[in-house]
């Protein structure tokens, strides 16, 4: 059994439902996730797409588990090749296999404890290096949006 490579825990002064909405609603993600919109019907086996502000594909994945407002898990494939659709990144020879993103949402002393686990990386993964810098900024921006009504980097793209 492999151990997870990346774990991030943040406490947010809000409700589990709002965190769920913030993670799954494209209109919401656009506000704190550098203008990017997440789209899916959030049924197990469905596609997840993460779109850049210009509508092009940033990354794609597959819903592994969606149990609102407690647990959300999907694969994360930054090479972005989905059903014949190709982004410019797929041409790169170092495309890695999809990894796995899991969010757990729990109530804790009147706040929400949000745990992100990102695992199943290839050894020496470049994607792991990227997400280790990316997730703290994204989730911190999410926290700021939910608590203060303003994200940290609204224009980041």
């Amino acid at each position: 059994m492999n151990k997870p490579e990346f774990v991030y825990v943040t406490y947010i002064d809000t409700t589990p439902d709002k965190v769920w909405q913030a993670l799954t609603n494209g209109e919401f993600t656009r506000q704190y996730w550098g203008g990017r919109s997440i789209t899916s019907d959030w049924q197990t086996g469905s596609t997840v797409k993460h779109l850049k502000p210009d509508g092009s594909l940033d990354w794609a994945g597959e819903v592994l588990e969606a149990d609102p407002p407690r647990r959300l898990s999907y694969t994360f494939d930054p090479s972005g090749e989905m059903s014949g659709q190709k982004s410019e990144q797929t041409a790169q020879p170092q495309a890695e296999k999809p990894s796995r993103v899991t969010f757990e949402i729990e109530e804790y002393m009147g706040k929400v404890r949000l745990t992100l686990t990102h695992d199943r990386f290839e050894p020496g993964s470049k994607v792991l290096q990227g997400i280790s810098v990316g997730w703290p900024a994204i989730l911190s921006s999410l926290k700021s949006l939910l608590e203060k009504g303003e994200p940290l980097f609204p224009d980041w793209s």
């Binding site: 059994m1 151990k3 997870p4 774990v7 991030y8 825990v9 686990t117 280790s132 703290p136 989730l139």
Partner: peptide, 21 residues
């Protein structure tokens, strides 16, 4: 530091959240 259970093993992780703040 946050803890993740893997079976009976208690694994300790560096949590970047406070340092991000």
């Amino acid at each position: 530091v946050v803890v993740v259970w893997r079976g009976r093993e208690k694994l300790h992780y560096l949590n970047p959240e406070p340092i991000q703040q």
